[in-house]
């Protein structure tokens, strides 16, 4: 998800019909610049060299999102969109329309990972490992990160685990879907909702962790765009 305001220009994006390594290339109505949707960076045109501001978002199930945010809005289906046209693609062996560019066999091509990149550094957290280790304290590109994962809904969220200048270390309290997934920081013993990043009691009650952008993606897609990626092994 990207901010559409770039300096003084508000951009409206459309689908150019071009691909870079299976990733969409967007155009904007205002300047006709072409943008990599995966990276959020311009590749050709008047705004070449510009990187869009990334806004964190979460891929999850409707039930989980609704439980976390009961006042949520949802994009209107207008009676249609009853299925996902890619349903079969998720489980077959096709690597996009164009195939792979950078083959990295540390994982199976269509293993799901949560990908995080900070500057030019990147790290992938496989769902298969997060299933067993749902709370991960790590450092990516020099930034202390917290990765939480709800195995039931396959919801992975990444936060910066620095609060008011202090780096916190988290451990699992109770695993659950939605608001019941609770973690605790070792420094103050405060309890936090893992899937919203809010502290609900303790010294830090009321504080919020800043969510970092992350990508829910197949391993082969992640390694095409981040050939030097680190891999979390547990």
């Amino acid at each position: 998800m990207y901010a559409r305001q770039v300096k003084s220009t508000l951009l409206t994006f459309g689908v150019s019909g071009k691909l870079i390594m299976n990733g969409l290339v967007m155009y904007d109505d205002e300047t006709d610049t072409l943008w990599s949707q995966v990276l959020g960076e311009a590749v050709r045109g008047p705004l070449n060299g510009t990187a869009l501001e990334v806004i964190p978002s979460t891929q999850t199930t409707w039930a989980t999102w609704r439980e976390l945010h009961p006042d949520t809005l949802v994009l209107d289906k207008n009676g249609g969109y009853r299925s996902d046209p890619y349903a079969r693609y998720y489980t077959n062996k096709d690597t996009g329309i164009l195939g792979e560019t950078n083959k990295d066999r540390r994982l199976y091509i269509k293993e799901y990972v949560i990908g995080v990149s900070v500057g030019q550094r990147s790290k992938a957290y496989p769902f298969s490992v997060l299933n067993d280790i749902p709370v991960v304290n790590d450092v990516v590109g020099g930034r202390p990160v917290l990765v939480v994962f709800d195995p039931e809904s396959a919801t992975g969220i990444v936060y910066d685990r620095t609060v008011s200048g202090r780096t916190l270390d988290f451990s699992l309290l109770t695993i659950g879907s939605g608001p019941d997934f609770l973690i605790q920081d070792e420094e103050t013993g405060s309890r936090w909702r893992a899937l919203t990043g809010e502290a609900i009691d303790g010294e830090l009650a009321g504080a919020s962790l800043v969510q970092l952008p992350s990508t829910y993606v197949f391993w082969f897609g992640w390694t095409d765009y981040h050939p030097d990626t680190e891999l979390f092994n547990g």
Binding site: M1, I55, P56, S57, T58, Q59, T60, T61, W62, W65, R66, L68, H69, D71, T72, L73, V74, L75, K77, Y81, D84
Partner: peptide, 16 residues
């Protein structure tokens, strides 16, 4: 079903 969820300034939205 899968959605992309975003929260900005208290506005929560889901995109199927």
């Amino acid at each position: 079903e899968q959605v992309i969820g975003v929260s900005i300034n208290g506005d929560h939205r889901a995109y199927p």
